[in-house]
């Protein structure tokens, strides 16, 4: 036996060095696999959120408000969720590379595979009924996401809260032939002059109507409109309004039912009073 072998064996015995147990090694390997899987799912969620944000944005409005292409991209692309996606992708590649045979796959291939998986899964989530639970999960996990600047995570509300750049949205408080009073999402009241503006057919500018306005800011609380649209550009909002419509219809039906019941009840009461009156008259005749 060589001197090195003897010395090594002696150290193993003296320090009571033991082989690491199999379960520890398997646990470590499984942690990497599970981590990879979780991060791919998170990447898909980040992709779904990115799709959601991109689909919600009214890109035509940016054009009409004379945004340049670069400004449109900076304002409309959800940089925050894309950064999240990039981090999750990097994490999933890192974890997979640390699995037992993960080193055999080139990083570029892994990024490509995970990216396409995330995009496919993310698109599926966005277009499926899973969208709402996924969105709720994200909002619960990141409650401040909607408060991020429009350049990081654009939402429809934020898109139409840029009066200085020609985009204003809100609820009509009052209207006349020349101007409307509008309450924006920041609870600020605006006077919107719309003489000569293009008003879409489905907009009556009645009180409580939600509208989107393209134009220019005249002074601190005055806005000059060039175009006014009803606030329903996205499929989500259309679904919401459909649901509201169904809800209001349902409530009106219920109120009709209630009134019917009340009518029936009144009729019964009347009949009962009439019977009592008849009995009373008979009693008087008998006496």
């Amino acid at each position: 036996m060589s001197a090195l072998t003897q010395k090594t064996l002696q150290e193993i015995t003296e320090k009571n060095i033991q082989p690491i147990s199999r379960w520890q090694i398997e646990t470590k390997n499984n942690v990497y696999w599970v981590g990879t899987l979780f991060l791919v799912v998170f990447s898909a969620l980040a992709t779904a959120v990115s799709f959601h944000a991109i689909f919600e944005i009214d890109w035509q409005a940016y054009q009409k408000a004379h945004f340049s292409w670069i400004e449109m991209l900076l304002s409309g692309v959800p940089i925050f969720s894309l950064l999240l996606l990039a981090s999750f992708l990097w994490g999933s590649v890192f974890f997979l590379q640390h699995t037992r045979r993960g080193y055999r796959y080139p990083i570029g291939v892994l990024f490509g595979v995970f990216f396409f998986s995330s995009v496919s899964l993310g698109y599926f989530i966005e277009e499926s009924p899973l969208n709402d639970p996924a969105e709720r999960f994200l909002l619960q996990s990141l409650p401040h996401i909607e408060k991020l600047p429009v350049s990081l995570f654009p939402t429809t509300k934020q898109q139409w809260s840029q009066p200085e750049r020609g985009l204003l949205g809100g609820v009509v408080l009052q209207s006349d032939e020349k101007s409307i009073e509008l309450l924006d999402s920041a609870q600020k009241t605006w006077t919107v002059e719309y003489t000569g503006a293009e008003v879409s057919d489905d907009t009556k500018l009645q009180i409580d109507d939600e509208v989107k306005i393209i134009g220019s800011q005249s002074d601190e609380d005055t806005f000059h409109a060039t175009e006014i649209q009803k606030w329903e550009n996205s499929h989500r909002q259309e679904e919401d309004s459909d649901e509201e419509h169904v809800e209001s219809k349902r409530s009106s039906e219920e109120s009709e039912d209630d009134s019917q019941e009340e009518d029936d009840h009144e009729e019964e009461q009347d009949e009962h009073e009439e019977d009592e009156q008849d009995d009373h008259e008979e009693d008087e005749t008998d006496s």
């Binding site: 090195l4 010395k7 090594t8 060095i17 090694i25």
Partner: peptide, 16 residues
């Protein structure tokens, strides 16, 4: 080499 051998011994159960 000695350090490497000790590492091998500690990871005997990790052999693929």
């Amino acid at each position: 080499l000695q350090e490497a051998f000790i590492k091998v011994y500690r990871h005997l159960n990790d052999y693929d």
